[in-house]
Each structure stands twice: as C-alpha cells, then as structure tokens.
C-alpha cells in the first residue's frame, strides 16, 4: 500500500467531517466513496474489496454512524468497480462521471435502506443530490490523481 493512497483516504475522511450548517449536509459530496471508487478502478490490483470494507468501517467510526453503515455500501460499490473497471477506464471522463453517479447512488441507496431500518425517515430522491455533486467532482479527481499517480509512481 503506497503512503499516498492512505493519505488520499485520510484527506477524504477529513473532508467528510468538515462542519457545515445542518441544512447543507445534504449537499456534501461523498468524498470517501469517491476515493474508494478511484483506487478500485485505477489501482484495482492493489486496492481490493477488503480495503474498501476497512475504509467503510473507519468511516463509520469517524462519522459516529452505526458500525457497518457505510462499510456495506463501500463493499458493494468497490465490487462493482472491480467488475467494470476495464470497460469504464476506456470511456471519456464525462461518461465515467455518469457511471460514478450510479455507483454513488447505489451507495446512498444502501445507506438509506439501513437508515430506514433504524427508523430514520427517508426523503426519497433528495439523497441523490450528493451523488450528483460527487459525479461532478469525478473528472477533477481523475485528472489530479492521475498526475499524482504518475509523479509518485503509484502502481
């Protein structure tokens, strides 16, 4: 595991708890899911599903949410990325972004199911706002991470 992979995940953790006002929280992109999807797609031999699960568990500890809440979503998302990376990597960036929207949407949906089990009210399509913003961030992330990857020779 390259130290920059860990650093990127740490940055994602920090960004995911930056305090915002209560009403703005729906708009926060899913940084951890974004980073996990990136490493699962562009470094799939070194970033497995188990790593994604560990990230999810850590994310739950940091976000103070029930254990397994985002671990569940991240495992599924990482698994789908591993199945599809060969095809998706050859797509244009905006097409990849659409795929990322779907992946993060699945992640949010799983989170929402868990929330439903815990009697938290589920507002139907509003939770997809975050997925949309995450997808908009995807091209930016790919471009910067790609240069970082080449610069520091991350396998």
């Amino acid at each position: 595991m390259h130290w920059l992979v860990i650093a990127s995940i740490m940055i994602a953790f920090v960004l995911s708890v930056v305090p915002t006002s209560f009403d703005m929280r729906l708009w926060r992109p899913e940084f951890v899911a974004l980073v996990v999807i990136y490493w699962s797609m562009y470094s799939s031999e070194h970033f497995g599903v188990f790593m994604a699960w560990c990230c999810g568990l850590l994310h739950d500890i940091i976000e103070l949410s029930p254990m397994g809440y985002s671990a569940l979503g991240l495992v599924v998302v990482a698994y789908i990325s591993h199945l599809s990376y060969q095809r998706i990597r050859s797509y244009a960036l905006w097409q990849q972004a659409v795929w990322v929207f779907i992946l993060v949407g699945i992640y949010q949906l799983l989170g929402n199911w868990v929330n439903g089990l815990m009697d938290k009210e589920v507002e139907s399509p509003t939770f997809l706002i975050a997925a949309m913003i995450t997808a908009f961030l995807w091209p930016l992330v790919v471009v910067t991470m790609r240069s970082v990857k080449i610069r520091f020779r991350i396998p």
Binding site: V49, F50, W53, G56, M67, Y69, A71, V76, M118
Partner: peptide, 22 residues
C-alpha cells in the same frame, strides 16, 4: 465480497438490536 456484506449486516443488526457494541 458476500462475506464482507454479511459481516456488515451482522454488525449493523448487533448495533441496532443489542447494546453489545456500545
């Protein structure tokens, strides 16, 4: 992957139905 999903679900239900994790 299925094993990990199962573990997460078990963790979630333990956390929800019991106080063992607190």
């Amino acid at each position: 992957m299925l094993v990990l999903v199962l573990i997460s679900l078990i963790l979630l239900s333990i956390g929800h139905y019991t106080q063992w994790l607190s």
